[in-house]
């Protein structure tokens, strides 16, 4: 148990920054729509982790309440996003985003 007493808010910050970076990298460079989805969720959860860590640090619950807001909004966002993805799949029969290159001048 001694090990866990040394974990400070900085550790959480580093962890969430790494998770956030991985998520952002995934959204920008992966070409599979489902994986991009998971990366967006990863980014949002990295933010949640930061907020909870800071909330503990400041000793009040504001940040934790905000996390609930983020969860609700993320759920709404995923609902819309999956609907768009379904529509795309019906028209194109793939989730590979490389085919989305019609809009160029």
């Amino acid at each position: 148990m001694q090990l866990f007493h040394n974990i400070t808010v900085n550790h959480y910050l580093v962890l969430s920054a790494v998770l956030f970076g991985l998520g952002a990298f995934g959204v920008l460079f992966r070409r599979n729509a489902i994986i991009m989805f998971m990366c967006i969720e990863l980014m949002l959860n990295a933010v949640n982790l930061t907020l909870v860590a800071f909330s503990k640090m400041w000793n009040h619950t504001d940040g934790q309440v905000f996390v609930f807001f983020i969860m609700v909004v993320a759920a709404a966002e995923v609902a819309v996003g999956l609907a768009i993805l379904m529509m795309l799949y019906r028209n194109l029969h793939t989730t590979d985003t490389n085919v989305l290159n019609k809009l160029k001048f």
């Binding site: 998520g23 967006i40 980014m43 985003t97 989305l100 809009l103």
Partner: peptide, 23 residues
């Protein structure tokens, strides 16, 4: 298909922007 593509791109970059702002 163009509208699909527009919605898709808007969704992903919009969510990315929201996440960055949230951080």
């Amino acid at each position: 298909i163009l509208s699909n593509e527009a919605g898709f791109k808007y969704f992903f970059l919009g969510s990315l922007a929201s996440a960055v702002m949230l951080f």
